[in-house]
Design a protein around this nucleic acid. Structure first.
Lengths: 183, 183
DNA sequence: ACCTGAACACCGTTCAAGT
DNA sequence: ACCTGAACACCGTTCAAGT
């Protein structure tokens, strides 16, 4: 029954969002489920595995949000929106995505998604993996910066972040278009 | 005497690089200095302030590495090299840069440096702050991905990371050049 | 099969005390 | 002024035990 596993991860994410990542302890998570801390161990391996599971859960949620139709530009914008929406929905848990190694299997699905988009944009195949990684670094990192309050002099309101992100994306889209026509 | 403060932060960074971030405890750091853990509190505020201090120390080290002469393209490449060199020199401590809010004063100096470079590239002033943030997100995030082993199918050897990073930077440089001539 | 309690070796931090 | 020891309320995790 990995229903229970999913339940545990769900509660851990909720706890992180409500009280910060530091509040995510085995004891606190188990308490939310009416169990003792040791009851979690059979379902998740331990604290580290729980954090990995949270990353996996976050990615899964994000990938479920991104629609897969429209022009490649539209799809790219949809993925970007999904990443930022995830970060804002999970301000406490999201930073795990950027701070934990990509051991999780779901992690690579974002790169695959981006690779698909770039492929249909006409990007030459040997360039696709590199550009996927560039974009995922930028998307994940930018959302993290917003959540973490990076950039002392950065955008102040969510609307300003939206505008900045849209402009960044337009630049990247132009970069990709130029790369395609250069070939 | 914030000589002592610097000494503490130095040892904390060394400890992180040698034994991982989790090994950085007040007790372990103080032991490296031949002190009890409580002796650190007058010099640094506590664990959180210590971690912030480490971020500050890392940024300072990086900024000292980046030469400030040559064409704007050369200077941009120099900054990029400095970021990656920092990450590889501090594989344990570096991730703090990306996981901790930019409260540290030094944090913004990277954006200033990038803004200066973009300014001398001829980027229109209203676009400069946004592009500085885009570049710093990309540079810091990419180095973090390398350290953290993000991207399951990513580059395997340091040389491959070098090549990928150089290609990314060329793309960004072209993007900036195009943005300048479009004006 | 599923859960618990006590226990161990750790944390960060406070506070009274030492020189 | 600078440092320490004991103590407190927490951790993650093990292990024997309960039903």
């Amino acid at each position: 029954m990995d229903d229970k596993q999913r339940l545990i991860i769900e509660q851990a994410i909720a706890l992180a969002d409500e009280h910060g990542l530091d509040a995510v302890s085995m004891r606190a998570v188990s308490q939310r489920l009416g169990l003792s801390s040791m009851a979690l161990y059979p379902y998740i391996g331990g604290k580290d595995a729980l954090l990995d599971g949270m990353v996996e859960g976050l990615f899964a949620e994000m990938l479920a949000m991104a629609p897969a139709d429209g022009s490649w530009q539209d799809r790219l914008r949809a993925v970007s929106r999904a990443v930022r929406a995830l970060a804002r929905r999970h301000p406490g848990a999201y930073p795990l995505i950027v701070s934990r190694p990509g051991a999780a299997a779901e992690t690579r699905r974002l790169d695959d998604l981006l690779a698909g988009i770039l492929g249909s944009a006409g990007v030459p195949e040997p360039e696709v993996p590199r550009l996927s990684r560039l974009l995922s670094t930028l998307l994940l990192g930018f959302a993290n910066a917003e959540i973490n309050g990076h950039f002392g002099a950065g955008p102040a309101s969510p609307d300003e972040w939206d505008a900045e992100f849209a402009a960044d994306l337009d630049d990247e889209i132009r970069m990709i278009e130029q790369l395609v026509t250069r070939t």
